[in-house]
Design a protein around this nucleic acid. Sequence first.
DNA 1: AGATATTATTTAATCGGTTAAATTATTCAC
DNA 2: GTGAATAATTTAACCGATTAAATAATATCT
Lengths: 340, 340
Amino acid sequence: MARVTLKDVARRAGVTTATVSYALSGKRPISEATKQRVMEAIAELDYVPDLNARGLSMRDSKLIGVVVPQTEPGERLMFQNSFYSEVLGSIEYYARQQGYHILISATDANESYLTLAKQRNLDGIIVIGMYPDEFYQQMKKTQIPIVLIDSYCNDHYYHNIRIDDAYGSYLATRYMLECGHTRIAFFAGQMKENGVMKKRLLGYQQALEEFHVPYQREYVFEGQIDYTSGIALADRLMDQGLPATGVVAAADILAIGAAKGFFERGKRVPEDYSLIGFDDVEIAQYLTPGLTTIRQQISLKGQKAVELLLKHIEDPSLPKQEEILPLQLVVRGSVKKLNG
Amino acid sequence: MARVTLKDVARRAGVTTATVSYALSGKRPISEATKQRVMEAIAELDYVPDLNARGLSMRDSKLIGVVVPQTEPGERLMFQNSFYSEVLGSIEYYARQQGYHILISATDANESYLTLAKQRNLDGIIVIGMYPDEFYQQMKKTQIPIVLIDSYCNDHYYHNIRIDDAYGSYLATRYMLECGHTRIAFFAGQMKENGVMKKRLLGYQQALEEFHVPYQREYVFEGQIDYTSGIALADRLMDQGLPATGVVAAADILAIGAAKGFFERGKRVPEDYSLIGFDDVEIAQYLTPGLTTIRQQISLKGQKAVELLLKHIEDPSLPKQEEILPLQLVVRGSVKKLNG
DNA sequence: AGATATTATTTAATCGGTTAAATTATTCAC
DNA sequence: GTGAATAATTTAACCGATTAAATAATATCT
């Protein structure tokens, strides 16, 4: 079954390819009669335009690139965690609604992504997460519209969709404090300067200060953002014999790992340790007990990113925007009330 | 920054575009000297070939389509569940290694995917899950190489990567029985004729039979494959006052939901109900208690699918293959030993 | 009816590559 | 040094679309 092309349609309708093209795009007037015949031919031949060919002359691709951090080629390969999966799903959904497809590429954010952008003529790119400065510099040069998600890159060139990370962990920590906890540990991923984790630490500190609880460095534990790291941090906390009664985790994944770490050593949540997460990934509500956490509307992030990107693609003069999405404390069963 | 094309490179190297093309592809002999100059020009101009244009003449796209079941456009949009995410991640990884990109499209598996395949000139397609017969009929007509994952479609036209689902739940149920359970409920997703869920039910029945435990219809609960359905099924089981001591779930997701359902009504796993899952998704090991389950090597599925697909793309005469990947019981803490 | 304006359609170039066939340059044998 | 064989390069057509410019067909006006 060979490909059906414009030429085939044209022949069948007794016109020229130009006529078919115009009939389809409406960029030139075409008489009702011919339009009719063209449409019939299209239906009869089951013609579908080739987007590559079209892209070649129109200089677009209807393709949106999505950059997510590279996963280690370990035993399990996946879109790193449920947070990414959810954003990706959302991006795919909204992009598709508008006739775009997404090209996901897990990457080290090195030159390779730039190559992809050129190879495939991407119409736009959504970058999830934080990368080295160099990466942003290079991306900028491509002139391709870009929207960042969850980045504190301060280059005014980029659109940005994010949350107020400091405020989120402030909310989390405050809730812990309100429940009567004062010896509260903080579990975080790698804290890079000006990164998401650093901001979340800031919120933790702010809440402590507000409640006149002195900030103590040894209550802060730094690891990676994955389950095993959560376990490891819990282990370290217990090993050090720190008299903490609660843990504020900078990500649900860390919290879940921590709960597991406690469990393995006979400690229970929330009886022995109270626990609060961040993100409200889907699984959080199905844990036992349910994970109290800070909800961010993950799929809204994807939606907003797509909307903004497409708006920019249509209107390249669109001024750079930063959108900060709302957060919300979700109380479930992982924090014990020490008071009332 | 306008696009750098072959023509630019050719001009710079003082040759023709054909020469550059041949120098790059090696399909015709080109003198070392010119090859040298061409490579220099490419480096200096930072030239990257346009895959669309190339695809247009070569009639390929270096694009692999991946079909996953459509997610409802509900509040949370995602790649349905962690199982899909993991397969997708794996597919993306291995495809990229070979210079292919993947085009994921959540779809109802209706005509729309066929359109995509034509529009984008997909080199091959990987279809995850089970779809209506009609879908397979249509896909066949495209002549595009296709590999199915987890399908019992018996059309000999397709390659197939799957597991022995019946054997998996047989293993699960047998373990339950070996632990001394006899009143064992079975939680499943929608059971379509010749579908994965139906096969898994079969394995459950086989194990019961082997242990001379009579199969009772009211011990089988059917829902959807998602967390909330797991909760709902647990509720139904408890509502009916069924004296079950264990539950074999046909998917980890269902098991996790079930554990939550029990928990909400004061019942504990494994004290009150033993629980065994199926898949061994990443989260299974981090639950409290860890979920005993049947492990399938999820990312191996993706890897095999990619390998097989690319092999077929290279050699269209490749005879259709069916590969059945191994399963393995993973004992963690969610099943209580009633005996010894 | 003839000149003019308007509408519909076609011609032909183009997008960025590949490639069969033709041409030019080089090597080799005698 | 000449002719034949071989190697290197170029010419030009093509992939499947779009589109500016040219042309043909139709409508409008006096």
